[in-house]
Simulated scan of single mutants.
Amino acid sequence: MKKIIKIVFSLSLVFYLFALVVLLFLGTRGYIWADMTLIEYIKSSSNLIPFKTISTYTNAIFNGSMNMDIPIKNLAGNLIMFLPMGIYLPYFIKRLNKASGLSITMIILLFVIEVIQLVTRRGSFDIDDFILNLLGALIGFGLWKMKFVQKLLKYNRGNSSFANKRM
């Protein structure tokens, strides 16, 4: 059973990473900005003000000022997109089994992703996306740390070092 869980986790990680790359870096975003210099693009597509986009979308949900699909997809999508990272990272990298280690790793990873999106013109640098992605990963980590999940894995991992740790 232990081997089956590892195989399922490994395969699902591959599919998740593929979907993440497609969502974050592939597609037609960026082509309309081809006539701008990189500096102009960076200035026009960066949001460094925390909660600016989040509050705009939250207000739109309550006052109906935009199609509901846009704010809901943006807010929920950014939250859910990195939720699996909060599960996969501590599963595959035992040093990330604490919130502090996971948080630092996710901050670095998300910063790199936002910069790559900006430089490749495949998205923007939005601090609100960063906040929602980090929050999603931490929610995933919270799910990972739930007792029933840990008991299930402890049962399936038998005598592994992970199973011998006290929770």
Rank of each mutant, 00 (worst) to 15 (best):
P90R: 11
I72G: 00
K98L: 12
T37H: 06
M68T: 02
G64R: 01
I127C: 08
L109S: 11
Q117N: 07
R29H: 13
A99C: 06
L24N: 08
V14R: 00
L79R: 03
D129L: 10
L135D: 02
G27Y: 10
S44L: 13
K43C: 00
W144I: 02
L24K: 01
A60G: 02
Y16L: 05
P71W: 01
L89S: 06
F162G: 07
V149H: 01
S124K: 08
Y16T: 03
I7C: 09
L152T: 06
L48R: 07
N133T: 09
Y88A: 06
K94W: 08
K43V: 09
I70P: 04
F18K: 04
S103N: 08
K6P: 01
I42S: 04
M1Y: 12
G101R: 08
D129S: 04
A34K: 15
I4C: 04
Y57K: 02
I127S: 02
M36Q: 15
L109V: 14
D69V: 07
M1S: 12
N63D: 15
S55M: 15
T28F: 10
N156I: 11
N59R: 11
A19Q: 01
I7T: 09
M85Y: 13
F9D: 00
F111S: 15
I113R: 11
G158H: 01
L138I: 14
L138W: 13
L79G: 07
I113M: 11
F15E: 00
Y88I: 01
P50K: 07
Y88K: 00
M106K: 06
E114A: 05
M81E: 09
I139T: 00
N156V: 04
K94S: 14
K165C: 03
V8L: 15
G86D: 03
L152S: 12
G123H: 12
I39G: 06
Y57T: 10
K165L: 12
D126S: 09
L23Y: 06
K151C: 06
N67I: 04
S103C: 10
L132M: 11
S55I: 14
A19K: 08
R157M: 15
I104Q: 12
G77M: 01
V149D: 01
I7S: 08
L118V: 02
S161R: 11
I104K: 14
M167E: 14
K6F: 14
R29Y: 15
G86R: 08
G136S: 03
S160K: 05
K145F: 07
K98R: 14
I93F: 15
I113N: 05
P50C: 11
Y88G: 03
L102F: 12
N164P: 03
Y57C: 05
S55W: 13
K2F: 08
I127Y: 08
K165E: 15
R122C: 09
F15A: 04
M167D: 14
I42G: 01
I39T: 10
M106C: 13
V115Y: 08
S160C: 07
I4A: 13
